[in-house]
């Protein structure tokens, strides 16, 4: 595996008043890696991710994303990342085609590039006939897959996914992960938060956050070995039980 680091974080912290949402986390993500960011609800996953995306100002610590500093160079970071938030973020009153055009357009793709992109994207998702369908009318699973494809429509270096498969059936989740693998094989680094432990097994490396700290970090196989567990579920339960903080 290449050792080029696309994300580095060193003692990155975020406080809201006295509440320490993210507590001195340090990690590195390699290029092309699928990096799983695990943790219970309220462990601080989303906050950490928002800091890396330039949506939230860190309280202390250092971090770079795609080689740019999260304090000063957020606009350069934004050109190089894709982001899919927990909340569904396509325009429901626009059609699939219009959503693709909008998101591709704001990242500076030309009309020709947009046409090519939307053709290949729709083909891959098997949605060619639905280009003119309003997003509002699509089933949730379709929307999630579409949102992911649109998040990487501008071929970013890194894509951040915040619980992308919440509320989606197992088959669609599987299809969704196929899309993630494909993006990864195209050289896009995938940073994904989840609390489905079967999904953790799909990641190259995972970190497990407990109460704002990273308590474990490594490949799923080695984590299981370290904690003498058969599944990631067990690893997670062992660590998460120590949590003081609840939702």
């Amino acid at each position: 595996m290449q050792t080029e680091k696309v994300i580095t974080a060193k003692n990155l912290s975020k406080k809201f008043g006295h509440f320490v949402a993210v507590d001195h986390i340090s990690f590195e993500v390699n290029k092309g890696e699928i990096f799983g960011f695990l943790g219970a609800n309220g462990a601080g996953k989303t906050t950490a991710m928002r800091m890396l995306c330039g949506l939230s100002m860190p309280s202390s610590g250092e971090a770079t994303v795609a080689g740019f500093d999260v304090y000063k160079q957020t606009e350069q970071i934004k050109k190089n990342i894709g982001y899919m938030s927990q909340r569904f973020s396509l325009y429901e009153d626009l059609t699939i085609g219009e959503n693709i055009r909008f998101y591709a357009g704001i990242y500076g793709l030309t009309d020709k590039q947009i046409r090519e992109k939307s053709d290949s994207l729709l083909k891959e998702l098997n949605m060619q006939e639905h280009k003119k369908t309003l997003v509002r009318e699509l089933p949730l699973g379709w929307k999630q897959k579409l949102a992911f494809s649109i998040a990487i429509v501008h071929d970013p270096a890194i894509v951040f996914l915040d619980e992308p498969t919440g509320g989606v059936d197992p088959i669609t989740r599987r299809e969704f992960w196929n899309l993630i693998y494909e993006a990864s094989s195209n050289g896009i680094t995938v940073f994904v938060t989840t609390h489905y432990m079967d999904e953790a097994e799909y990641c190259h490396r995972v970190s497990i956050m407990v109460d704002g700290r990273i308590d474990a970090l490594g490949a799923p196989a080695s984590l299981k070995k370290d904690h003498a567990a058969k599944t990631m579920d067990e690893v997670f339960l062992q660590l998460a039980r120590k949590a003081v903080r609840s939702e």
């Binding site: 330039g54 934004k78 938030s85 909340r87 396509l90 500076g108």
Partner: peptide, 13 residues
């Protein structure tokens, strides 16, 4: 309210 502002904020607009 619908959350699309996040997607705008994370873009280079």
């Amino acid at each position: 309210e619908i959350g699309t502002i996040e997607q705008i904020n994370v873009s280079p607009i």
